[in-house]
Design a protein around this nucleic acid. Structure first.
Lengths: 172, 172
DNA sequence: CTCGTTAGCTTCGAATTCGAAGCACAAGTG
DNA sequence: CACTTGTGCTTCGAATTCGAAGCTAACGAG
């Protein structure tokens, strides 16, 4: 039974709106920059960045990539397919787990990443950090860190008994 | 000539990632709640909220709505069309400006809004504000306010001479 | 008044996104 | 080993999104 929660006070409401608004605007600007500079979507850029910058080997399992990116699994497959078709990554079965897929960035992928990264940095610096001092940025990061933790550890839904979900084995 | 900008220091990079991540997660959670509680998309909810809560008359021009929402004009038309088909708003030509369209929320629209609002508040409170004190929320709002201003006042692109943009007159 | 320009919104086609359903491999149980 | 359950990823169809193109109304200059 949904107990009517207390409405958000103006301060929180403002913070909520500002957060969503800033993120949307920033995302749109970044997307535009990426499209013009390197024909990349935001998701593709995130994947390349994760592979090229966060990984010493340049490889990741699809699942690991999905953890870093919010989007749905199917969307991830789609974008990874586009990246592969563009020659920026390769997909191969994982050595340990036959059903896993390992995605590896190619040299062309690294080159493309290096190509768009400066512009990306420039846009983020200009739009997000121009009005913020270094101390502000630090405060923002420290404010958001626990929120991120909290969201990532909270299940998507509280109740909802998950109607016998998942993979039915014997298909045909 | 894109002068290579200095890369983002770790603090700013962390703030940037945290911001985008938190906003994405929150948006997904909110979208899910809205879909389950009231068959509304996020954009539709924003439009209804703007009409039902922000406007004394319950009406707005399309342009005013577009200013509050980030999405494209065509997307706005699409969602407004869906809302109209669902009977939650009406669209009529603006009295002053014959080419403007005024969107007005209906009683059914207000009812639907009242229906989903508690759940929406609950999700936002739980996901975003549970790990934040009231002072934290205030700090967050004050940090983001100038950023929002800055983004909204900055043109989408700096250079790019806008190739003779807009409406070409003699179509046929 | 007539022409050229701008503003406001819609239509169109292509691309992206999601959730549900499906398949193949892995792991646990008897 | 046979069988059941769970994990990892992909395919599929529907819905949403965007940008470009188009149309009508308002505006400005000659």
């Amino acid at each position: 039974m949904p107990v009517t929660p207390p409405p958000l006070d103006p301060v929180r409401l403002g913070a909520y709106f500002a957060l969503m608004d800033v993120a949307s605007l920033l995302r749109h600007a970044v997307e535009q920059q990426l499209r013009e500079a390197g024909e990349l979507s935001y998701v593709q850029f995130q994947l390349l960045a994760r592979l090229g910058l966060d990984s010493p080997t340049g490889s990741h399992r699809m699942t690991d990539l999905a953890d870093g990116v919010v989007y749905s699994r199917s969307g991830l497959t789609y974008q990874a397919g586009l990246l592969e078709k563009a020659g920026l990554v390769t997909r191969s079965p994982s050595p340990d787990d036959e059903r896993g897929v390992t995605v590896t960035i190619t040299d062309a992928g690294r080159a493309r990443l290096a190509e768009v990264l400066p512009g990306h940095t420039e846009v983020v610096s200009r739009l997000l950090f121009e009005p913020l001092s270094h101390a502000d940025a630090e405060a923002l990061a420290q404010l958001l860190a626990p929120v991120r933790e909290h969201m990532r550890s909270t299940p998507p839904r509280s109740a909802a008994p998950r109607r016998r979900g998942g993979a039915r084995p014997g298909g045909s």
